[in-house]
Nucleic acid binder design. Sequence first.
DNA 1: GATACCGGTATACTTTAGGAAACCGATATA
DNA 2: TATATCGGTTTCCTAAAGTATACCGGTATC
Lengths: 127, 127
Amino acid sequence: METTEHDKRKCPTHLNSGECTRMLLPVRDALDILSGKWKLQIILSLTFGKKRFKQIQREIPGLTPKMLSKELKELEINGLADRHVYDTAPVSVEYELTTYGKTLKPLIGELHKWGTKHRKKIIQQGG
Amino acid sequence: METTEHDKRKCPTHLNSGECTRMLLPVRDALDILSGKWKLQIILSLTFGKKRFKQIQREIPGLTPKMLSKELKELEINGLADRHVYDTAPVSVEYELTTYGKTLKPLIGELHKWGTKHRKKIIQQGG
DNA sequence: GATACCGGTATACTTTAGGAAACCGATATA
DNA sequence: TATATCGGTTTCCTAAAGTATACCGGTATC
């Protein structure tokens, strides 16, 4: 591992940029799964317990069945939520966070905490 | 505040859905500002200290100047970052988190924490 | 018999996000 | 003189996100 003039030019003032790069990778992995308009809202909804399809849709204003269906599939694929089908007539379906999905609770908690403060700020500012 | 038959049908099993709705609003406000592929990565980068335009771009692989420029403007508008122009020749510009922007550190911390565990999981699974 | 609910799907569309590449004037460096 | 750096902007483009609306079979309710 040698340090060349070239490298120095690239990081003149902040030699901790290696640390930044190292932190970036996990953050990117998280964002790959969680980013988008709906996913965290859906996870938040499931945080309160298992929910049925239409129930989630009712709780989250603006969420269309198409988007909800798509997002739930992705949550399943990523191991964050489970889908349970009950043999009623007509069938009832419940969605539920997996144990792994529940590990997102602290993150959701922080998001809510910050959002609450932010909401106060923008409301008092009038926009 | 009266409870009608209609309302009961809409919330048959989970009467805490009001609580869910209440939590949803701040979360949405937070997501409005923070969602997208780059914003949290840029904020993370600025967490380590003030940075110059190209420096941020170098630290975040794949980030084009167009996107960086756009995202930085939005961070400024939302009061999360400041832009300082120094009268050198050619001008140098530094970006820095505001005090308010720094309140995002716990959230970024959780994102990093969860991302780290998640990264381990997907790597050991092979994708 | 009409309507509403369930868990979605299908189609068609608009909007936004994001990417690739070239370019700018000014300056420093080789 | 050629090249690279700085902090971006401009143009053109694609892919994804998101919206609107209608629809499905089955059942319960009015």
